[in-house]
Amino acid sequence: MTILVAILLFGAIVFIHELGHFLLAKKNGVTIHEFSIGMGPKIFSIKRDVEYSIRLLPLGGFVSMEGEDGESKDKNAFGKKSIIQRASILFAGPFFNIVFAVILFIPVFMYIGTPGTTLSQIVPNSPAQVAGLQEGDKIESVSGEKVNSWQDVVTNLTNSEGKEVKLVIDRDGKDQELNIVPEKNEEGRYVIGIAPKYEKSITKAIATAFTTTGDMIVQMVKFVGQLITGTVPGGVSNSVTGPIGVISLVSDAAKTGIINVVYIGAIISLNLGILNLLPIPALDGGRLLMILIEALRGGKKIDPNKEATLHIIGFGALMLFMLFVTYKDILRLF
C-alpha cells in the first residue's frame, strides 16, 4: 500500500509538471499530439483532440508537441511560435512544480503550526539560560533588527558570527534587554539554546509556505553548485537519488502519516521544478538556453535538426546517469 501511495504521489507531481507545459501550449495554439504520464508501453489511452495516455513506467511524462524537435510545416508547430511563447511553454512545467510545492506546504504548516517569536523552551546551561531568558518571552529585536518571524531570529543569530547580540524581549507586557553570546552548534550555525512556540494560523501557514519554498530553492541552488564543483559532502553518488529512491522515501513517510507524505511531496515537486531549469540538453532549462541564444542572435534560429540532435545526446546522458543513480538506489535498499 505504501508503494502505491508513493507511485500515485510521484505521478501527481509529474502530472502537474506536464500540465504546465500542456496548458501554456494550448493557450498559445500549439498542435499537441499526446499528453502522457509515465514512460514506456501504453497501458491506457483515450483520443480526443489530443491523445491522453498512461504508460507502464512511472518514471516521468511528456507532452508531445508538433515541431518541438526538428522542422515542421505545421503553422501551429512549437517552432513557429515566438520566443516569448516558446519560453513560457517550457518554463510553465517547472513553475507549476514550484507553485505545487507551496500549495502542499500550506496544509503541512497548518497542521504542525508555524514557529513564532515567543519561546517555548530554554535549553539548560545554554547561553540563553545563562543570560536569563525564560519560557514565554517574546523576542522583539536582535541587535537592533526588528524580528517578525522565527526565521528572522535564526538569520540574525547566524549573522552574528559568535559576537555578542542584544535581544529586546517582551516579558509580561514589559520590554527588557539582554546581552547574549551565541555559540556554534554541530551544524556550524550560531545558536543560543532556545525553541519557538508553534502557532496554528492559515495566514501564517501560507506565509511560511512561501518563505520555506524560497529558502529551499536557495539551498538547492547551492547544492547544484556543489555538484558542479564536486564539493558535495559525502560525495555526489551518495547525495542524489532516482525514482526508486524517491519511491522508497515516500513509502517510509507513508508509514508515519499522511502529513509526512505531503511534506515529502512538496520537496520532490520543488526538486523536480528546480532541476528541470538546469541548462542541460533535453531538460526544460537546456531548451530555454537554446531560446536565449536565439534571442541574443537577434531572432536567428538554431538549426532545428542540430538542436534536436543535441537534445537526444543530452537525453541519452541523462538516462545513463539515471541508470547509475538507480543502481546506487538498489544497493542502498539491500
Rank of each mutant, 00 (worst) to 15 (best):
D69F: 08
K328G: 11
I106P: 00
F96Q: 00
V123E: 04
G162R: 09
M220Y: 12
I264E: 07
I169M: 05
K80N: 15
L275T: 03
Y198I: 07
L272N: 03
L249M: 13
T208V: 12
G245A: 02
G298H: 13
Y327I: 15
T31M: 02
R189E: 13
G286M: 00
G136M: 00
F91W: 10
K328R: 13
F315L: 14
M216Y: 06
F96Y: 05
P279T: 08
T114S: 06
G285A: 00
S143R: 15
S126E: 04
Y190K: 03
M216R: 05
G173Y: 10
E294A: 09
I194C: 04
I206L: 12
E186R: 08
V123A: 06
K146T: 12
I194D: 00
K138F: 02
G132T: 12
G265V: 03
K174D: 05
P243R: 08
D170C: 09
Y263K: 14
G20Q: 06
T155S: 15
G61S: 02
H17F: 04
E187R: 13
K163G: 07
Y327D: 07
S143D: 15
P107V: 12
V108L: 02
N179W: 05
A131Y: 10
A295I: 15
L133F: 01
K146V: 13
T241D: 03
K42S: 06
V240K: 02
D152N: 10
D170G: 06
N238M: 13
P304V: 05
A317D: 09
R171H: 08
T155G: 08
D252H: 11
T241M: 10
A254P: 00
L23S: 10
G299R: 05
H21D: 12
L292D: 05
F22I: 01
E307K: 00
